[in-house]
Simulated assay, not measured.
Amino acid sequence: MALTAEESSRLIGLLRDHAERITQRWTEAVAAHLQGRLSQAELLRHVQDLHRSMINLGDQGLVDLEDQRAGELRAELSELSRGWARQGFSATETAVGVFALKDVLLEVMEIDNASDALRDWVAYSRLIDQMGLFTFESYVRTRESLIADQAEQLLELSTPVVKLWEGVVAVPLVGTLDSARAQVVMERLLQTLVDTGSPYAIIDITGVPAVDTQVAQHVLKTVVAARLMGADCIISGIRPQIAQTIVALGIEFGDIATKASLADALRHVLRLTGVETARRARRES
């Protein structure tokens, strides 16, 4: 998709001879599409950087985005894509930042009225299409990275580990517990147990809409991992429907303490830690 030497020379001539008009009209075309979502000064800077990179590449005698000498131009396109993706621009808006150059070049070529203008414009369009596709691919990679980061942050926010008091932590689970989230729960719980030295952990599944074999296995793995760290786990939130499902599926929690509600689990932990006994002793005295 490289331009010929003659096409490259004529394109660089256009970019140089009409530099001010091209950058101005290019900026105006993109600004009209973005409708004020980006400042004129910042948009002009992006356009000027791309304009300069295209000239620098053309001065090397070859205009092809896939060539190793096109690193500067690819870097400018990547910066544009990443920056606009992070600012919330759509893929179309980002691509227009490049494709708007087509109409601008056509205007300039009409002014020169060259005999081979149409053929050259078709060749230049292929190059701009190549730039646009590269921009779109960079945009997609950036958006995928942002989505992955946001998903990870949501997982962390949706699986808090709360220290109730000295020696007792709780993990209130809300929503579906899949493999990825179960891994986050286990990691955060184990880290909290290490940080606090707590011997007891309450895993509350009141907010889990349904418990199937997969969810039960995730919970059991978390309990086993906590036990290896020297902590006993109590599972709370075993509602009647969940209890029936667990029995029907043949799932066994073994010697793991289970309670119907978080309040029951708290009372159980109080007894284990001797807090309730101490209160009774004070009342009896």
Rank of each mutant, 00 (worst) to 15 (best):
M186R: 14
V224W: 02
F99E: 07
R45S: 10
S158P: 00
A91W: 03
T192Y: 00
H268K: 08
A70F: 10
P160W: 13
E284I: 07
S179K: 11
H218I: 04
K259I: 02
P172C: 05
S236Y: 12
S198M: 04
A2M: 06
V162A: 11
R280L: 04
W26V: 04
Q191P: 00
E28S: 14
A225M: 04
A216N: 05
H268F: 13
F134H: 11
A19C: 01
R10L: 09
Q241E: 14
H18A: 03
I251L: 11
A29S: 11
E76T: 12
G230K: 13
A5I: 12
R45M: 03
H218T: 03
L272K: 15
T213R: 13
T245A: 10
E152S: 15
E66V: 10
H268A: 14
L101Y: 06
R280A: 04
E66Y: 09
A114V: 14
L228P: 06
M186Y: 09
A91H: 01
T222Q: 07
P160L: 13
S198N: 10
L155I: 05
N113H: 08
A182N: 10
R25Q: 14
Q217P: 00
R69K: 12
D264P: 06
K259A: 08
A201N: 09
A19F: 01
A257T: 10
R52C: 07
F253Q: 02
A75T: 08
A114P: 04
T159G: 06
T192A: 14
A2I: 02
A260K: 08
G175T: 09
P240N: 09
F99A: 09
D204L: 01
H18D: 07
T142N: 02
V208L: 06
A32P: 07
I256A: 05
T27C: 11
H218M: 06
A91F: 05
R227E: 03
S39V: 02
A257R: 05
V194M: 11
R143C: 11
V211N: 05
I205Y: 00
R119S: 14
P209S: 02
V215W: 03
D103G: 11
D129C: 02
M109Y: 04
V98W: 07
A95V: 11
Y139L: 05
H18E: 06
M229F: 15
P240F: 08
L80A: 08
V168A: 09
R279N: 04
L80P: 00
P240G: 09
R283Y: 05
V108Y: 05
G83D: 12
I246L: 09
V171E: 01
L77F: 07
I12Q: 12
Q217L: 06
R188Y: 02
L14K: 03
T27S: 11
D204A: 04
E187A: 13
A85V: 00
E107T: 06
D232V: 05
F99S: 12
A41E: 15
I238P: 14
A281Q: 10
A151M: 15
L133D: 03
F134P: 00
V224P: 01
A29M: 06
I147M: 05
A5V: 13
A225W: 03
